[in-house]
């Protein structure tokens, strides 16, 4: 009855987040080519979906060899269930985070509202399109980026609360997910500015035609991590541990980092980052740990029911 992807360690299943398909298609092709020249024929299968839903499926038995997510809490969720190693952060270099991204602004061509930095988003009359932090990782990162930007300039949590409250008053309606937000901004032409991941900018240009929007780099923004882990439960059964490790390590090679950069995903390699300096314009990046302790802590304080976000945002009562 085993009809899933796995027919032996000549294949790997990578369970990943949405919108990473183009990146992994190129990366997988490069990895398969490298392995073939070493005499090993193999196939990489891909599964894409919302990062948290994917983590849930892996916990419930989806036979992933590796997970590549865009939120560390989703890997922690698997670690708590013993599906990936408890010390997954130590299993790969740089805290098992081979690539990162950050939150930027997209504005209409020519930037008619003159939006330059975070403070401009809270100005009266500016309409901000952003994902609901209760329903999407994209939205949580946008919220934390806004809050952290105030703290990063030396503001207090009270200042941050005030700023974020005013910012979310400028949100006409919260989008459910990243795709929904982009649709509202570009297809329904709602809003003056969209807060989204840096790597979305390239997809947006591809689908909606380049030149319709400009990317704005604020003075500082949040560093978001794309963590990776080997699924111990699967590799123990299939004997694919070595192959899985070699695949994830490929993400750290110059070739892997280069492919990430081509898809708008920030490489950790300084050399590659410098080569793509026109795409990844330097901006001051702060981490979740710096201002919130950890993502789990931020989740508890800000996004759980009755948390800060529930107090500042009342649906249907903007402004």
């Amino acid at each position: 009855m085993r009809l899933a992807a796995q027919s032996g360690p000549d294949s790997l299943l990578n369970v990943s987040y949405d919108v990473s398909r183009e990146f992994f298609r190129d990366l997988n092709a490069a990895f398969v080519t490298r392995e073939r020249s070493a005499g090993r024929m193999l196939r990489i299968e891909q599964s894409h979906g919302g990062s948290s839903a994917q983590a849930r499926a892996v916990a419930d038995g989806l036979a992933a060899d590796v997970v590549t997510f865009n939120t560390t809490t989703d890997v922690d969720f698997l670690a708590e269930r013993g599906v990936v190693a408890r010390d997954w952060r130590q299993r790969f270099p740089l805290g098992a985070v081979p690539t990162t991204s950050t939150m930027l602004f997209l504005v209409r061509r020519g930037n008619p509202r003159g939006i330059r930095d975070w403070a401009d988003l809270a100005k009266p009359g500016v309409q901000v399109i952003v994902v609901n932090p209760k329903t999407g990782g994209n939205g949580r990162m946008a919220y934390l980026a806004a809050w952290g930007a105030v703290r990063d300039r030396g503001g207090s949590d009270a200042d941050a609360l005030d700023f974020v409250t005013r910012l979310y008053r400028n949100v006409p309606v919260l989008a459910r997910g990243g795709r929904d937000a982009t649709g509202a901004f570009l297809q329904r032409n709602i809003g003056d500015v969209l807060i989204t991941f840096e790597c979305e900018v390239i997809s947006v240009d591809r689908e909606f035609g380049s030149g319709r929007v400009d990317a704005i780099h604020p003075s500082a923004s949040l560093l978001t991590e794309n963590p990776v882990a080997v699924v111990e439960r699967t590799v123990a059964r299939r004997g694919s541990a070595e192959l899985a490790r070699s695949y994830l390590n490929f993400l750290y090679t110059p070739e892997g980092q280069e492919i990430a950069a081509r898809h708008g995903i920030r490489p950790r390699s300084e050399a590659v980052l410098r080569r793509y300096a026109n795409v990844f314009r330097p901006l001051k990046l702060f981490t979740v740990e710096q201002h919130f302790g950890s993502l789990a802590e931020a989740q508890r304080v800000h996004f759980n029911d009755g948390g800060t976000f529930d107090r500042i945002y009342t649906p249907g009562k903007p402004a």
Binding site: M1, R2, A4, D60, G61, L62, R237
Partner: peptide, 27 residues
Amino acid sequence: YVLVFGAQGLLGPWLVARDVQIVFALP
């Protein structure tokens, strides 16, 4: 079906031990 046949489900451990994949596969 996930609750019954999933890895954390009712029959999950039994199925995993026998290497039978029901959910997240064609069955």
